[in-house]
Amino acid sequence: MVNPRKNRRYQHNKGDLFFKGLALLCAASVPLLMAGILAQLISSSSLSLKEFGFGFLTSQEWNPVTEVFGALSSTFGTIVSTLIAMIIAVPLGLVIAVFLVELAPPKISAFFGGAVELLAAIPSIIYGMWGLFIFAPIMADHVQPFLDKYFGFLPLFQGAKMGIGMLTAGLILALMILPYISSVSRDVFNMVPTVVKEAAYGQGATTWEVTRAVVLRYSLRGIVGAAFLGLGRALGETMAVTFVIGNSHRISASLFASSNSIASTLANEFTEAVEPLYLSSLVELGLVLFLITVGFQSMAQVWLWSIRKKLAD
């Protein structure tokens, strides 16, 4: 049979040529846009690139008055808050996916699945409002004193209990990426052939044994892909973090301390930056974040693509 999508004989009239050309132009807009973002970020940060060079990445200094800028504290905050989020959201997301696929009856599973997807649809700024006005006070009054009391010997849980800070930001990020991780994991779990699972059940394995020995083993690569997607989200998340991280350019051992992330620095300072070098340094911060997220996203895409290819074979 002739596949009309591939056969060139069908594309002869002028209308078709025009339509195809237009569609091609629109498709080209996506890679052009990516190239444009990269080019624009580099050219607009040229002042700062020239002034600070590679030292920009390793300097902790951020002083708009003396005009000395470095990305280290923001990058550190971005990485640590993302790490906290991943440590919590990956196991919790997996556990939820196990519940949705292996335990819950179809109706309850559909209900919970829908609820988790709604969680993903809530705009970031709503998490910020909730985090600042409702969650942060609870952190200050209950969670942080508790951590201080039982784990206060660790430098991680020392210092003033203000409610806002790195830990709160990480927890809210965890909540935000949870839906991504659980829904992708659920989809991956659903791809495990029922025959294999039934074979294990038939041998007398319990639900957990089937989950561990068959489902998790079978979908390990997919889970890594899901985690990558969540990671990419968390790295660039802006508003929720800006509300609760405290926004100070400081690297602290304590998770209670105010900190900042690249995204929160941009959100807070971009409109205030009047001096060209200040603005250029902020754009360079943006460039750093762009490269980090594009790097992780590319890895996630290639990874997921290789799984799909393997499954198709």
Partner: peptide
């Protein structure tokens, strides 16, 4: 090959933080 590139870039663009898009449009 071209559409594989477009598809790949589309997935990457979905993951670009929205604040970066803001910075880009600011400079543009």
């Amino acid at each position: 090959k071209f559409s594989s590139l477009v598809r790949f870039m589309t997935n990457i663009l979905i993951g670009v933080p929205s604040i970066i898009v803001g910075v880009f449009v600011y400079t543009l």
